[in-house]
Design a protein around this nucleic acid. Structure first.
Lengths: 350, 350
DNA sequence: AAAATATGCTAAAGCCTTTTAGCATATTTG
DNA sequence: CAAATATGCTAAAAGGCTTTAGCATATTTT
């Protein structure tokens, strides 16, 4: 009833009447280096192929210290931004023989600390991290330990680590300028309460644009640790409290979603009653009526660079090679939601 | 410059002047069973806590054969359906001390075969699988090997494995009935070409509803291995070729998306020119104008049941305990996109 | 022709745990 | 009081691989 026993390197060696070491060396491409004759190397390879021997990865890892697993930490794998980046990273990692083990933090610092510990226990070879705040010392320690590591989307302030981020300041600045150029004066920003670096820079872009035009800021900070319905409600209240508001910028895709829902409920039509721009593109924004103007992040490039940095660190032995800090430029995709209607249209709708 | 050496079980034993075995047994909760005195057990636990010793998971895994890692295979982690299920599974797995390693298949059978092999090499403790066709023998072998395994979303025909699926036939039947009840006669179905089981049953539900009303089927099968723009184009052609079509059912969320884009381009307004229902709910459908009627899958329950089945198999020793085949009932969420406009409204728009 | 070097391979240590068999000593039983 | 059983713990094997030091033999150098 038992299936045939798993074949071991020992069996290969025995059958070919060579040593285990020889088989191992050949299998790891160190035959030349270790002066195993070509003919023997080939004999080994052939037999291994023939019987379909696959080394036990656990044993390999235990001995070599390499697991060929990358730890991916995102805020929420169900968020299209992270899901898409994860998908792209996954593909490129796989192409290079690495597997992904992932966890969602849900912005919970304590839980994230556990996740990092678990990843360490599991001896992941490298880290791809989009972390909540409060893990500065942990990540610093990781960096110091020399483990390949890339932060993305956001960084931790004061932690000198490789990072691939998007220039949210410029992105938001351009978005705001686009609104200002059309004569909008009362432009709101809806952002989150946590001080993640990417949110701060996005807000700065908005602030600078308004400052240049001597216009006052109008900002709502949303506490995310509440039910979706409450968040929508909070936004409704905000809009109601600012009936003069003509345009609104959302700093993330999910805020944009909640915002659209809030505007729906209020019956504020877009863009007639209010213009809308969100950070971070996705299918919904593209297909919404009207299509939503967005600051699109270059996801593909992002994933590519993340993996590139990581692979370099994984291969290159140089420990203190200096950090890579890559700032990618987002792209304002102007769609209908931010185009000021003609006066006649507005009048019609009054 | 070097950080302090990682602490080993050996160090613990030495410091406490007990054997390694004792420490191991205590740490694995087998103190009682192996008659380690309570006082010693506590001494061990205290010291371990004090110095923060964490066993090397690789060594544990190698020795015990358990990795506490689950392999998750989905069609595309960037698809909101899979991303959401992944998120829910992840949470519950973590609660039970399991980590997730995942891969997207992209409907590529050959690549998926590799993925399964890799998972096996990595000695995952269990599998959660939404597979493309063509892996019947591989999965059968896995099942026979006794590895805990749950298929979800779809099954492989003829493979007797645990499975958690959604009753797409009933879901689509009800959706079609809803349209028929409103007097729609020419109802199209847009589905994919591949013969995945879940797609087949969804189509059957549609077919049965039409049959009961003696209405002809109107089906378009989309080949997914093309560019998005082409898919949209194909749907446009389909609609143009069937101008009498009054309503359309999409069998997946992404088909629904493409379909909405196609209808947009054609200028066919929903639901005035054509009623729309899609399988599988998500934020876009909820927020779209008009909101799209969907056959919503019970994602939370799904994830819960998947993990429940898996954990039972992981704990329970019984190898041939019989298979679990769970069929969950989806829910028709009627929104505006499938509500037949009054005659006057229609006339207005003519 | 002896010494040095190159060639081709292997023995065995090491990675860090878990787990089994079993050794003393103490207690109970007949 | 000897034999049986219980108690509390440990030595050592096992898990499957990588890697280092080094052993013969063959070839080249002085």
């Amino acid at each position: 009833m038992e299936l045939k026993k798993r074949i071991l390197i020992h069996d290969i060696a025995k059958h070919l009447d060579v040593s285990i070491a020889t088989v191992s060396l050949v299998l790891n491409g160190r035959a030349k280096e270790k002066r195993i004759s070509d003919v023997l190397a080939e004999r080994v390879l052939n037999y291994v192929n023939e019987v379909g021997y696959k080394p036990n990865q656990l044993a390999k890892s235990l001995r070599s210290g390499k697991t060929h697993v990358l730890g991916l930490v995102v805020e929420d794998i169900a968020n299209p931004f992270f899901a898409t980046v994860a998908r792209l990273i996954e593909r490129k990692a796989l192409e290079n023989g690495y597997h992904i083990i992932y966890c969602s933090t849900n912005r919970d610092t304590a839980m994230t600390k556990d996740i990092l510990t678990m990843f360490e226990e599991r001896h992941v070879d490298g880290y791809v991290l989009a972390l909540p705040e409060g893990l500065e010392s942990e990540v610093s320690a990781l960096v110091r330990s020399g483990k390949p590591l890339v932060m993305f989307d956001r960084v931790l302030s004061g932690v000198p680590a490789n990072a691939v981020v998007v220039d949210g300041a410029t992105g938001m600045y351009e978005a705001a300028q686009h609104l200002l150029a059309q004569g909008y004066k009362s432009i709101a920003l809806i952002t989150i309460m946590h001080g993640q670096t990417q949110m701060i820079t996005r807000r700065q872009g908005y602030a600078q644009a308004l400052r240049e035009h001597n216009l006052p800021e109008l900002v709502s900070e949303i506490e995310l640790d509440q039910e979706p319905a409450q968040i929508v409600g909070q936004m409704e209240s905000f809009f109601q409290a600012h009936p003069h508001c003509e345009a609104v910028l959302f700093t993330t895709n999910y805020l944009g979603l909640y915002g659209l829902e809030a505007l729906n409920r209020l019956g504020w039509s877009v863009p007639n009653r209010i213009a809308v721009i969100s950070f971070d593109d996705n299918a919904l924004f593209r297909l919404y009526s009207p299509p939503i103007t967005v600051v699109a992040q270059p996801l593909e490039v992002m994933a590519e660079e993340i993996i590139k940095v990581l692979l370099t660190a994984l291969k290159g032995a140089k420990p203190t090679n200096g950090m890579v800090l890559l700032q990618l430029t987002p792209k304002l995709l102007i769609r209908q939601s931010s185009i000021r209607p003609s006066e006649s249209t507005r009048a019609n709708l009054k």
